[in-house]
Design a protein around this nucleic acid. Sequence first.
DNA 1: CAGCAAATTTGCAGCTACTGCAAATTAGAG
DNA 2: CTCTAATTTGCAGTAGCTGCAAATTTGCTG
Lengths: 235, 235
Amino acid sequence: MIDTPTTSTRPRSREDKHHATSLRVERSAVSLVLEHGFDNVTVDMICTASGISQRTFFNYFKTKTAAIIGAEPPTIDEASAREFIAAPGDDLLPDALALMSAMGPPDGIDEQLFTDRIQIFGLHPQLLQEQLERMSRVTDEVAELVYLRLARGVDTDTETDADRVFRHGQAELLTHALLGVLRFMALQWIPCPQFGATADTSQEDGRERPTRLTLAEALDRTVTLLRQTLSIPGL
Amino acid sequence: MIDTPTTSTRPRSREDKHHATSLRVERSAVSLVLEHGFDNVTVDMICTASGISQRTFFNYFKTKTAAIIGAEPPTIDEASAREFIAAPGDDLLPDALALMSAMGPPDGIDEQLFTDRIQIFGLHPQLLQEQLERMSRVTDEVAELVYLRLARGVDTDTETDADRVFRHGQAELLTHALLGVLRFMALQWIPCPQFGATADTSQEDGRERPTRLTLAEALDRTVTLLRQTLSIPGL
DNA sequence: CAGCAAATTTGCAGCTACTGCAAATTAGAG
DNA sequence: CTCTAATTTGCAGTAGCTGCAAATTTGCTG
């Protein structure tokens, strides 16, 4: 609470340690869930596996689920946001979809953790739902960006307040619709339905690449389908 | 488990009683939540208020939340579905949106219960989210309907399998997008954000009408906005 | 390095949602 | 009325999660 006087000088160790522990716990959680399934993993198991007390666990994560899908929710990258607003083309929808797809782990990119989570999402639809849910929390932020982009080529001086309100509504509606499309894409991307696979400690698997590639593919396919769908006459 | 031989003759009392109890519990739950807020209502409170044991409560409802937002999830009305497929006009999106908006309580329409729940949704965004979540469970069903409607005016004989698959994809994508729009509409409709209102046992209030009306209004506005948005050139 | 203050971790006690099981109660059929 | 099957209930237990205060660690300062 007291303002951090030495923040900019050396905010090291303390923060770093926290981050490290956090990561360690998340890894343990993910491993355990992959091995035993969500329901068969207790918080205690995660704690002993990662060497912290249960109480500390709940100091780090609000819920058991949070430890599995990641402590901090996905965020829009600052740079991507800027890029999106000023993007050259006229492809609003594809660009927005790409922007949202890019919402990844805010921390350093831990490849293993990332792919493991993808796998978990495939095995536990409830967790995928939760993650998508968390993604839609940035609705307002995305809507603001869409709003700004919609404003391109509009003379903001001669514009009435009504125009602005209207465009704001458009932006929000578009964003919600796009979130729906994002869900569609995610469901296409991740092999969700009941899979018989269980108990497979795939720690050093050599083939996590396809998932990543498929993300781009899924995005591409979705955009294509979206375009073809928008051209339906009756709509 | 044993097949009910006298089902058609007199399936009365037993089933009826169950339904009655269910309704009574839901009413208690809703009242209590309106009075004390979600977090301050325990399952025990609901039980004593409705005169059943806790164990019985969980025989009726899977979760505490289920008792509050309703035991059975919203469903697509059979008649509405048929109507939707064969609807005269060319307004696919508006019709589909109307179809989804019509997802109401499957049981008899208890006006008071209904409006109380709307109020609860406004006070507890989490519960609204859950309800919207439950609505999106009918995705597949709606997508099938959209698929069928998209098939209108198509010669299904000369159509290739690829065409069908393609149209199926379109239907699914459209449905997901529309679910997003439905969310948008719901959020517009329900005064969601932090409201200071607490502790108000509005049992005999004379003004539950506006809510209902606003649903139609919200639908109308959303459809209008949707149309105006779809006509954006760059889209 | 000693020593101090603040932050972090931990143990513990407790609450609440939820489940399995077996006994008790109730309802419907003959 | 009686028997059988369904429903309800009590009880004991599991697991997620929280508040609180003690114990420990951390980082700084003299």
